[in-house]
């Protein structure tokens, strides 16, 4: 069986299996052979949008993680690294905190997108006109820390005791209590992000080789790097505004693909989309399985599962380095 057929068959089977499991989960029992009007409403307004949100956000995070790992030539890169999600969350929390969200239904998503893109702008300005991936990483860490500090300050000064709840809602991520409006927010933004990524995708393959080689091959490194960062920032901002910050999916999706023996950058990139969707569906199923009456934020579950996996990856990388000398 060819690699493509084997990976596609496995992905389709797993998506069908996990989707069926995901859609059947919930407090209400559903008789799928004789659906009542109430059950139809539960499926249509609660379960289906939640399933779609998991799939779309998983795709966005999987693609973003893979694109960043390929761009930064670092297998431990993930969307949180470039400061976009933190800035997007900061703007979201600020809007909610000051009660500006009531002004217009588009105000919150628009400002979250502006937050994410301004985070990207800061990173790009700090990285400068030279192509130095270490500067991008350091700039991303600086912007993330700045956004986290600003969020902490807002909470510290908050007269409202419920401010912390709002903060945790966005920084720990959740698929609960979401419906079609959140899906309408994230879907177009993710589609734009995917289109941008497809446009600049070849740089990611070329970056298998050294930066000097890639520049000599006719690639405009700085502008194309910024284009890919824009694609990632767009997708991550869309994801944060719909479900908050969900960590580790972007890190784990490309590694799951590589564990199947896939190494070519383009394949790792595009296979990371279904891998991200599968991982987020699995995390959401797990979240609901282990939650009591009050549902845990999915970000906590993904960190609980993802952090040990990250440690395992670090040890694996160290072991591989020892073997190759």
């Amino acid at each position: 069986m060819t690699e493509k057929l084997w990976v596609t068959s496995l992905t389709v089977c797993l998506i069908l299996l996990l989707s069926a499991w995901h859609l059947s989960q919930g407090s209400a029992d559903i008789d799928w052979l004789a659906v009542t009007e109430l059950q139809r409403t539960i499926i249509w307004d609660i379960r289906l949008p939640r399933w779609l949100l998991a799939v779309v956000n998983g795709i966005a995070l999987g693609l973003s993680g893979a694109a960043l790992q390929l761009l930064l030539r670092n297998p431990l890169a993930e969307p949180g690294l470039i400061g976009v999600s933190s800035m997007s969350a900061l703007f979201t929390v600020t809007v909610l905190y000051f009660g500006w969200a009531a002004a217009s239904s588009w105000f919150l998503p628009l400002l979250a997108l502006v937050g994410g893109l301004s985070g990207l702008l800061l990173v790009v300005l700090m990285a400068g006109r030279t192509y130095d991936i270490h500067r991008v990483i350091l700039a991303g860490v600086a912007v993330s820390s700045l956004a986290a500090a600003a969020m902490g300050l807002i909470l510290y000064l908050a007269p409202n005791p419920f401010a912390f709840q709002e903060w945790s809602l966005w920084t720990l991520g959740s698929l609960a209590n979401r419906s079609w409006p959140q899906l309408y927010l994230v879907l177009p933004v993710v589609v734009v992000g995917i289109a941008l990524l497809a446009f600049w995708r070849q740089l990611l393959t070329a970056l298998t080789l050294s930066e000097n080689t890639v520049a000599s091959m006719g690639f405009k490194l700085v502008s194309q790097r910024n284009g890919i960062l824009l694609a990632v920032a767009t997708m991550v901002s869309g994801s944060v505004v719909s479900v908050g910050i969900i960590g580790f999916i972007g890190l784990l999706a490309p590694h799951t693909v590589r564990l199947l023996g896939v190494q070519h950058p383009q394949k790792v990139l595009w296979y990371s989309a279904p891998a991200g969707a599968l991982l987020l569906l699995a995390m959401d199923i797990l979240t609901r399985l282990i939650s009591g009456p009050r549902e845990l934020p999915i970000g906590i579950v993904s960190a609980l599962v993802g952090a040990p996996l990250l440690i395992a990856l670090l040890f694996r990388q160290q072991h591989a380095r020892k073997l190759t000398g």
Binding site: L70, R73, L207, T208, L209, S210, N212, T213, S216, M217, Q263, H264, P265, V268
Partner: peptide, 14 residues
């Protein structure tokens, strides 16, 4: 022109 740098390495095992 084409350029091959010293000690070229591939980041991914293609």
């Amino acid at each position: 022109l084409s350029y091959l740098p010293q000690n070229e390495q591939a980041q991914w095992d293609i």
